[in-house]
Design a protein around this nucleic acid. Structure first.
Lengths: 198, 198
DNA sequence: CGTCTATTTGAATGTACTCAAAAGCGGTGG
DNA sequence: CCACCGCTTTTGAGTACATTCAAATAGACG
């Protein structure tokens, strides 16, 4: 049941943690389930939890002044999700987080988060590395969004996140890549015909 | 001399650290100076340090297949800079880092970084919070890049980073915002005439 | 089977780009 | 101190690419 979390910790921290310690760590989380199309977090409200997904899929999105949604990131089982701006800064959330499938998650509130960092030496390190990895991924995304073509970015996306393709609707992937859904459809069409000819 | 670093730590960690502990922490760094237009880090090579800037300015950029540069982030005194992908992952750097002004910096290599995290309980927390803050800032940047107009993004940039405007060339700011330098020039022109009329 | 949502396709529009050149600015050396 | 040179910013004109609007097709779900 918690094997996914334990594996996540082990791989991230890079060393073995005694099973009983992991269980004590695990006890700080509470189990939650969410239906499809449920909001875990709303822009403007406090986001009081960080979630570790045990199953299902969610995505977070930003809504601009004109009311248009932009997909920010996706998460499947084994991923973490939250509005970190709100969770860590105790401020109003910037993003919405919505389930794309029914979700089973382990929820950690801010108090338990701090408790985890104090009680377990591996926890602070674990969350530091998570944040670092996430930051690096975002930097790379910014670099490619601003300098590579939409086609290049789509191919890169399919290469890096093949498991997303099957479970994330295409119009959200288009939004994530910063293009209109029609444009992604046309890019895919071009790729398909080019593929067929060669 | 190290007051900037100490203040940075204090404010980030959110509590006082004894002065002698801060000095022991400080001893892990080595002082470096760099001329203007010096590369601290090259794409494809290992980036073996994280730098804390005591004075001067640097920017990091990405170079795509076509050889075009894209500005990724800027750093002034009081900021940290590195290619985190390379530094933490021990892989080839994705970005270049170049000085825009002569720089005085405190350099921390990977070994000392790990040592700092082991010896000082505040260090792991410090670097976790740094990474989190950086991550949140990038997420917001992605959100606005993909959904707000270039004008909106420029105004937001001037609001959030007024101290950058005086010291970062305009064509780099344009690159950072994901637009051509000519486009930024035109946006500024429009804003100026609109300002004058009202 | 029918409804709702997602994807594809078409045509017209427009925004931001590229290419090109001029003007502005700063630093260096005579 | 001024003249020159290189780099940055501005301005102009034409172009191209992604977008928008619109509608048809395809798929999912009750």
């Amino acid at each position: 049941m918690s094997a996914l979390l334990f594996e996540n910790v082990r791989r991230t921290v890079g060393r073995e943690i005694p099973q009983e310690v992991l269980w004590d760590f695990r006890k700080l989380f509470s189990e939650k389930t969410f239906d499809k199309k449920t909001l875990l977090c709303r822009e403007g409200e406090r986001c009081r939890h960080t979630w570790f997904l045990e199953s299902g899929a969610v995505y977070s999105y930003y809504v601009n002044n004109a009311g248009e949604k932009t997909a920010i990131q996706f998460a499947l089982e084994g991923y973490w999700t939250s509005d970190m701006f709100s969770f860590f800064g105790d401020r109003e959330a910037l993003f919405y987080i919505e389930t794309l499938e029914p979700v089973q998650a382990l929820a950690l509130d801010r108090q338990r988060f701090e408790e985890a960092c104090e009680r377990f030496s591996f926890a602070e390190r674990f969350f530091r590395i998570l944040a670092q990895n996430a930051h690096v991924a975002q930097l790379y995304r910014i670099a490619t969004t601003n300098s590579e073509t939409a086609e290049h970015r789509y191919l890169e996306f399919t290469r890096r996140y093949p498991h997303f393709l099957a479970r994330i609707p295409q119009y959200l992937i288009a939004s994530y890549l910063g293009i209109a859904p029609q444009s992604l459809s046309r890019i895919r069409q071009q790729l398909a015909t080019r593929q067929a000819r060669s």
